[in-house]
Simulated assay, not measured.
Amino acid sequence: MVTTTAPPSQPAAVTRPRRAKAPASKKRREALAAYAFLAPDVIGLIVFVALPMVLAFGVAFFKVDGFGNYKYVGLANYQLMGSDDQLWAALKVTGTYVITFVPIAFVVSFALAMLVRNHFKGIGWVRSAFFLPNVVSLVVVGLIWQFLLVDKRGAISNLLAPLGLGDVSFLGTPSLALGTYVLISVWFLMGYQMLVFLAGLKDVPKELEDAAEIDGANAWQRFRFVIWPLLRPTSFFVVVNSTIGAVTGLQAFDLVYVLTKGGPARATSTVVLYIYEQAFTFNNMGYAAALTTVVVAMLVLCTGLMFAFTRGGRFDED
C-alpha cells in the first residue's frame, strides 16, 4: 500500500509593520495653520515696510511739496546730495555716533551678561534692573535725561558741583552733546543686548568649560578658547542689529529729537533727523524719499559685506 504525504505547508510571509502615514488632510491643515501664524508678520512687512519702500523709491524722482503737488525731476534729487553740506554734516555725525556707540554698547552689554550669567540671590532683580530702561518709551527716557542734565539745576549738575563741573552744559555744548547722546543710548540699550548675550551664553556647553578647567586652563583661557568662539554668531547679530538701529532706529530719531533736536550747532543732527526735517519741516518730500533710498541701500550693502566677510560671525569655519 502506497502512502503519500502532503507537502509541507509554506511559512506565512513575514510582513514588517509600516509607519502610519499622516492623512493628506492633516498635513494640509498643519500647513494652513503655519501660514496662518506667519500671515500677520508677512502682511505687516508688506504693508509697513515693503510698500513704503517702493513708494519712496518712486517719489524720489519727483519734486513733491506739502500740498501733494508732484513734478517729475528725474535724478535731480540724487544730484542735489553731492552739494548738500548739511547732509554731509549729518552723515559725519551719524558715522561718528555709530563707530562710538556700537563698540561701547557691545562691551558694556557683554560685561553685564558675564556678570549676571551665574545664579545668585537676587539675580532676577538685577537682570530686571538692567533691562528696565528698554521697556520705557524713548520719549520718556529723553525727557528724564533732559531733566537730569538741565544746566546748573539738574541732579547731575548738583552731583558734579563739588568737582567744579556743576556749570557744564552737557546737552548745550557742541563738543559734549554727541558724547552725552552716545552714553544715554548705551544706557538705554544695554539691557536688551545683555539678554541677547545671555541667550548665547546659555548655549555654551558647561562640559567644555569644565574640561578646559580640568586641563589647567585659567579663566581668561577658558573665555578666549571656549566661550568666545561659540559666541561669535551672537556677537555678529548684536553688532549688525545695533549698527542698523544706530543709523535708522528709534534712538537715532526719537531720543535725539527730544534731547537736542539736532543741536547745538547741528552737533547731534543725525541723517534720520535730517530726512525728517526735509520731509516735514521744509516740505521737500521728494528729496527726503531720495535720501531714504540711499540710506537703505548703504545699510543693505554694509550688512551684506559683513555677512560675506564674516560668514555670519563664523570666522573660523571652513
Rank of each mutant, 00 (worst) to 15 (best):
L112G: 01
G166D: 01
T173I: 09
G164Q: 01
P174K: 15
G95D: 03
G166T: 02
K92D: 07
M194R: 01
A161N: 00
L195N: 14
I144Y: 02
V126D: 15
I99Y: 15
V93E: 08
A111M: 15
A111D: 06
L195I: 05
V108T: 09
V141M: 02
P162E: 02
A105F: 11
L148I: 14
L176N: 09
S128M: 05
V64C: 11
V49Y: 09
A89L: 15
L75K: 06
L143Y: 02
I99R: 07
A177P: 15
R127H: 03
R117F: 01
P103R: 14
A50P: 02
G68L: 13
T96E: 14
S137K: 01
G164A: 15
K152V: 00
L178T: 12
A105M: 10
G166F: 00
V139N: 00
F61D: 05
P103V: 15
L115P: 13
P174Q: 15
V135E: 06
R153D: 04
I184E: 08
V150C: 04
V141D: 00
F130S: 09
S185W: 02
W145A: 00
F110N: 02
I123Q: 05
T180M: 11
V139L: 03
D85F: 10
S175P: 15
W187V: 09
S185V: 04
I123S: 05
L195C: 12
H119D: 13
L91S: 11
G191Q: 13
F110Y: 14
G68S: 10
V150K: 13
K63S: 15
D85Y: 13
G164W: 01
V93S: 10
Y181S: 11
V135P: 02
I99N: 06
T94P: 00
W88T: 04
L80V: 07
R117H: 15
G122N: 14
A60S: 13
G95S: 11
L51N: 01
F101V: 05
A177H: 13
A90W: 10
V135N: 03
V102E: 05
A161Q: 00
L149A: 04
R153E: 00
L195T: 14
V126C: 13
V116M: 11
G179A: 08
M114A: 10
G68I: 08
L80C: 14
G122Q: 10
T173Y: 09
F120W: 14
D167C: 00
S185I: 06
L55N: 09
V73A: 12
A76T: 09
S109R: 06
V150M: 06
Y78M: 03
V168S: 02
T173L: 08
V73D: 04
L159A: 02
Q193V: 14
L183W: 03
N69Q: 15
G58T: 10
N77F: 14
D167Q: 06
V139K: 04
F147G: 00
W187E: 12
L171V: 04
S137F: 02
I123R: 09
D167W: 01
I144D: 05
G58C: 08
F120K: 10
V168C: 02
V136W: 06
G58K: 10
I99T: 09
L171N: 13
I99P: 12
F106T: 10
T180K: 14
T173H: 05
L160R: 01
G82Q: 12
Y72L: 12
L51K: 04
M53Q: 08
A89C: 08
D85W: 04
A76C: 07
M114N: 04
N77M: 07
Y78C: 06
V108H: 01
M190Q: 13
V108S: 03
A155Y: 06
M81F: 10
V64G: 05
